[in-house]
């Protein structure tokens, strides 16, 4: 029983920490006037966050993921549809998985 309570405590703690991240950054920036430098930084964040997230995962993933990534990017560039890009990305990775 106490074991289960500790699970709930850990989940509640994680939820609060995540909430602090979600609200904390917004709260802070709403209270300061960002300098032009900070505004420029924020404008670059969307792309750089995704690059930082994706690059190590791709390098770790190997050829199967690289083929899938190339398919997803090509589909997104030419079809401009997120569902198609994800589907073709998985299809590409799957094709490589079956062939290799």
């Amino acid at each position: 029983m106490s074991e289960h309570v500790s699970n709930l405590e850990a989940i509640a703690g994680m939820a609060l920490a995540t909430l602090a991240c979600r609200f904390g950054g917004y709260w802070l920036f709403a209270r300061i006037t960002p300098t032009p430098f900070i505004r420029h930084m924020l404008s670059y964040l969307p792309g750089t966050i995704f690059m930082a997230f994706v690059t190590p995962a791709l390098v770790r993933g190997g050829p199967q993921d690289w083929v899938g990534a190339a398919c997803a990017i090509a589909a997104m560039m030419f079809i401009r549809n997120l569902g198609a890009a994800i589907g073709l990305g998985v299809a590409g990775a799957w094709a490589w998985h079956l062939l290799a």
Partner: peptide, 11 residues
């Protein structure tokens, strides 16, 4: 790979 594919496509 679908989750990673969605992040890559969003770039």
């Amino acid at each position: 790979f679908a989750a990673l594919a969605s992040f890559i496509a969003l770039l």
